[in-house]
Write a protein that binds this DNA or RNA. Structure first.
Lengths: 245, 245
DNA sequence: AGCGGCCTTGCGGGAACCCGCAGCCGGTCG
DNA sequence: CGACCGGCTGCGGGTTCCCGCAAGGCCGCT
């Protein structure tokens, strides 16, 4: 069994290497990469089926890397090892995991024991292991209160990108009013109010305010914006090529 | 000489401790804290004058911690040790450093040598040491192109918070039109255009778009938003108490 | 069938936003 | 001193945003 480690911090990389070797005697080789792009390349070259991946790396982030690895080999087992349990990361991961694939999400603050256990569970037993704290944010995200649904999340990203209502409508195949309705729901769930007086002296611009609290609540972050921007670029190009109107 | 290390990652904390002891034989004690709040407390209790501080920690970030430490003892020497050279961090730091204070900014990706050199320069020689890469973003930030001035930056933060033009005007003591003029400059410098057609079918909402590219360019980030939100809260309370109108 | 809920869509209007035009003022330079 | 520049301000209008009201469609339940 070959294990690929993708992690840009040398200290963490070394620590991970030790843990992998200690937890998995059946591991024949540990391969190391320092960013997502290199990880993709090495995974392809070595035909690796077991990966430990950091999210949030400097040059190419872990979600991108995992996506292309999974696209090429959907049965690859990936353990995400991250500093944060931000909803943006959790959503980003759960959106790209292929059906039936075994994966894990463990925080860097977890104990040695927990990490080794997760390694064995995922790589040997083929089971999913989600850190309890991460599970927490996942739960919250689908709970009644503060729970942003998938469709709403799309629109939220769109306004975070700075799109117009009309553009969002075209992109998502909705009417203008529907987009605005969804925005209304988002404002509700994010508890965004006008601030002071309702009418002439509202303190907040709701749309901008919603983005602000979404960022503060870690629903969206830099990585998510980058990905969304790339998608948007694709769509804009496609729309310009064949504007079916 | 006592040195306080504020860093939430145990691996990095241990590494820092080793480096400090190796680089500074005159160091009599190394004290460790795992977040900004604890760092403030320990600095006060031990009367520490030499601090190594991580930015971006989970519970209370380094800029907050450094601010209160410096407020209590402006001659404290602080070395910031960070993963990133984002403009938001650089601005955040350079805004709180007291006049004449010695401080440093070194990236975690720097070599062992560089870290030790910086430790000696700052703590012993009382000199400022700014990582070259950080200097780079600092330069860029004040250069002609893409250079957001301090006043513009304030307004940028305000729209990122979701404030109305009118509210910004009140807060900053400007007329409505002046705020909008500044916004215009920001749009220019951030190269934010309407996207497709000028008039009825603009793809972008400029204000939201500006925030989006500001985040992607790392002019603002989560920590900066948190701080700005706290400031805003103070101002709102003050404005409600004595609305001089 | 009838009913109630949920989502979608259209309409209308008040507020906010984006921005060109123009006047005012303090500072700099020839 | 006059010319010029950059920043601040008011005015006006075109567009977008925010949102209440109401009508229609789909679905499940009684």
């Amino acid at each position: 069994m070959k294990v690929l480690i993708v992690e840009d911090d040398p200290l963490h990389r070394a620590y991970l290497g030790d843990s992998v070797r200690a937890a998995l005697p059946e591991c024949s080789a540990v391969i190391e990469a320092t960013d997502g792009a290199e990880g993709e390349r090495l995974a392809r070259e070595h035909g690796v089926a077991h990966v430990v991946m950091d999210l949030q790396m400097a040059r190419r982030n872990g979600i991108e890397g995992a996506r292309t690895i999974w696209r090429e080999r959907p049965d690859t087992r990936i353990l995400f090892w991250s500093n944060y349990s931000d909803e943006a990361y959790v959503r980003g991961v759960s959106r790209i995991v292929p059906p039936g694939a075994a994966y894990g999400y463990v925080l860097k603050s977890a104990s040695d024991e927990r990490l080794k256990l997760a390694l064995r569970s995922i790589f040997i037993e083929n089971q999913c292991v989600i850190d309890n704290e991460v599970r927490g944010t996942e739960q919250r995200s689908f709970a009644r209160t503060g729970g942003i649904s998938e469709v709403e999340y799309e629109i939220l990203i769109d306004i975070a990108l700075g799109l117009t209502d009309r553009t969002i409508a075209r992109r998502r195949g909705l009417s203008l009013r529907s987009v605005q309705n969804r925005l209304q729901q988002i404002y509700d769930k994010l508890e965004v109010h006008q601030g002071a007086g309702q009418g002439p002296d509202a303190a907040f611009n709701l749309r901008a305010r919603a983005v602000s609290v979404a960022i503060r609540r870690k629903l969206v972050n830099h990585g998510a914006l980058e990905r969304a921007e790339a998608d948007l670029g694709d769509w804009l190009a496609a729309a310009a090529a064949g504007p079916r109107r």
